[in-house]
Design a protein around this nucleic acid. Structure first.
Lengths: 197, 197
DNA sequence: TTAAATTGACCACAACTGTTGTCAGGTTAA
DNA sequence: TTAACCTGACAACAGTTGTGGTCAATTTAA
């Protein structure tokens, strides 16, 4: 039964701990080698667990990938909410949100790569339309809305694309600017996103 | 020798024809199944040729992928140049360029996916920094430049990201707008890209 | 101590990969 | 017709993949 204690912890606890190890390994591989590096066996090697424990927590390779993505998606959402909850003034809110986002991604680039690249590169995420970023963007820029629904959708999609590309370029070193300039530019992108020309 | 004729054509001709079949098959797979679908064997099956002929024209899987990408990259470049050569007025030029680009990609979505997605998703393209799009963007927006070099670089990277994301969303059906509105929005993106806020 | 639960190390299967090699026809110039 | 060449269908290699199973050793509650 679940309640019985074993080696100091309960079975469910250990199972959860193993699941966490697997997700962590998945994050590591997905965030450094890309989705090609995330095979069941590689994840298990990395987590120092056997395949048996993989299928104890996930039915699929796919399920693991989704779990990793949503795990760090949740972290990002939380970081955004926290950042925004402090300030009321719109421009300051946007700035705080962007700063929080950048900080999350630069302090752990693996997370940045997972959040930005994985939904495009990994079939497990591509197929289902599991993209968290658009909802984030609407969360940030939704208030200052110009235009009709279609217009706003295009703007939001474009904004996410612009931010992603800039971040990615920064992460892989092809964009050499200071962190503050990066944040500054992104803030301008967000603020200027739905201005009409 | 190359000059000798065989079955009505020269050896070099047939070899070139086979290479073309392989590139076409590669485009088909890369543009529909994504880079995971592009294996040597799959390409050969698709082209109705044997592996032998693959290695007759390419040393590597990688070489084929690069060839496909550059092949349609060249088509895109040509389309842009043609479109721009007609008109002189800057805003009209941008509009014509965007229209030509959209037309190329919508008339054959495989090409759109190859041009936009492949350089991000396929290791063979990711590793080497073979990204044609940034140079296209600079070709289009380079003239109306505000700010210093770093600023322009960020703007250009962001612009490409925004356009890519909008195109991709349109291609996979998650963005439902008319073709004309799409073009219109993209033109505004290009024109408004380096306005300061 | 005994019996049950948990663990880790493997192995097996079929399918796929890149790459190279072989070998029996067919086609053509001489 | 003969000899050179071209072609297509395969086989072989060692490697990886997902997914499942087995089995002996350990750890614990009773």
């Amino acid at each position: 039964m679940a309640g019985r204690s074993w080696a100091g912890t309960t079975l469910d606890d250990r199972k959860a701990a193993r699941r966490e190890q697997l997700v962590e390994a998945g994050l590591d591989l997905l965030g450094t080698q890309g989705s090609a590096g995330v095979s069941v066996r590689a994840v298990c090697r990395h987590a120092k667990l056997t395949e048996r424990y993989f299928y104890e927590s996930f039915t699929d390779r796919e399920e693991l990938v989704v779990a990793v993505y949503e795990h760090i998606g949740e972290q990002a959402r939380q970081a955004l909410v926290d950042a925004v909850s402090d300030t009321a003034e719109p421009a300051e809110r946007a700035k705080a949100a962007v700063r929080a986002f950048v900080e999350l991604m630069l302090d752990d680039p693996r997370k940045g790569r997972v959040l930005l690249l994985a939904p495009i590169t990994d079939p497990a995420l591509t197929t289902r339309g599991i993209a968290l970023l658009p909802s984030f963007a609407e969360l940030v820029s939704g208030q200052l809305s110009h235009g009709d629904a279609a217009e706003r959708q295009m703007t939001s999609i474009g904004l996410v694309g612009a931010l992603s590309n800039v971040f990615i370029a920064y992460l892989d070193g092809s964009l050499k600017v200071s962190r503050d300039r990066l944040i500054d530019h992104c803030v301008r992108l967000v603020l200027g996103a739905d201005r009409q020309s």
